[in-house]
Design a protein around this nucleic acid. Structure first.
Lengths: 226, 226
DNA sequence: GTCTATACACAGATAGAC
DNA sequence: GTCTATCTGTGTATAGAC
């Protein structure tokens, strides 16, 4: 699998993300015409990600957002009940989107070695397709409410546990070295996060997500495999 | 070298950090009595790091800072000219402190293998001794002014280049595998950052900086050494 | 040196016209 | 559905007493 294939299969676009969001949240959105909602949600999410990822969500004013979207501040409140609500909505949505895709792909394999390799690629490719969302989610995690934060911590723990379980299976099967599985999983997750946190740096150096994935795979294999 | 030894040799304390700061900045601080300045700078920096690292620098109000330090808002403005100034001061100071220590240690060795190992430990140990500063510096990097940001990018580039140069030397000496040195350096830096970015997680799991250093060394050696 | 009181700019949010 | 106008709270920063 490479990124182009992944994209073709999943088709994560701004529009699909918004459609998905509308299906799950049409209760709390005052506007009812789907086409209008999609058009404006795309503007709002896009603008919020752009401004927040430049200077932080707290530093983004509703006026900033209004200018960037081309909507009035009044109009925006038809799509969310307040600034904090927008933040929580976005955090929640990123999580559910990402989790759903991971689960779909991870169910298909059983061999630990292939599972590990697949897992690496799926995570990298999702974070690439939704890079602004992942960056946002990471940098703004401090500001969300307790309930959401617990969910975020839980979700991150799950990701790490998936990696850990694969490593343990590999060790049991005699394929992997006897490293501390907890620590290995942590480090691997850090290397995955590096991709979306420093994406600009890699773009400047013209390193594609596929090349990054290949490199990661090679170094992880060299320290984890017997 | 372990962390206890490092600490004994360097003695990085909040007080030493503030004394150091005062020596370099007494021009821009209105108060002149050193003892008073040190006492209050320690309060201000401590409080600013605590609150910012909880909810972000932008979200921290001067009133918050005033309550946490026990100083009035008026009094604080005797130590910096505005909130933005405080941020830039802190960013600048973290950089110079860290850089100075790294340079001191890195000049002592020539063998690439030992240089790499030393470099790992020195970086981890500095970031441990100044963890709130490192976390702050990373998370608030977006908000600083252009001049400071360029310095920050430059400083980060230098760190990465030091690692890269060591790897290239090791390859030339026939000690290291022929991996892409740029990528390897990036990944190693990411693993170093992981320590201070997720320090709470490791504290909860009772993993010390020494154990983390040992683990990092072992996995880096296993993928980098021939 | 430090405090209290306050200026005044700007934030988020809403009401009501269109 | 969207806009304009505006309310009200909170933010940073300062002036002047002590």
């Amino acid at each position: 699998m490479n990124y182009a294939e992944f994209q073709k299969e999943i088709k994560i676009t701004q529009k699909s993300i918004c459609r998905d969001f509308f299906c799950q949240n049409h209760g709390s959105i005052r506007i009812k015409k789907e086409k209008t909602v999609l058009r404006n949600l795309e503007k709002i999410f896009g603008a919020a990600l752009k401004i927040s990822n430049q200077k932080g969500f707290q530093a983004m004013s509703m006026r900033d957002l209004s200018i960037e979207t081309g909507l009035s501040t009044g109009a925006m409140y038809a799509y969310f009940s307040g600034k904090e609500d927008l933040l929580n909505m976005m955090q929640h949505h990123k999580r559910t989107m990402a989790m759903r895709i991971v689960e779909k792909y991870m169910k298909e394999e059983t061999d630990p070695l292939i599972r590990l390799k697949t897992m690496l690629r799926v995570h990298l490719y999702i974070s690439e397709a939704m890079q602004p969302w992942f960056y946002f989610s990471y940098m703004e995690a401090k500001n969300i409410n307790k309930k959401q934060r617990n969910q975020a911590v839980e979700s991150s723990r799950i990701t790490e546990n998936i990696i850990k379980e694969i490593i343990l299976e590999g060790q049991k099967a005699g394929l992997f070295k006897d490293h501390d599985a907890d620590m290995s999983a942590s480090i691997i997750k850090a290397m995955l996060q590096e991709w979306y946190l420093k994406r600009k740096k890699y773009a400047k150096r013209q390193i594609s997500v596929d090349r990054y994935a290949d490199f990661l795979e090679s170094i992880i294999m060299s320290f984890i495999r017997i």
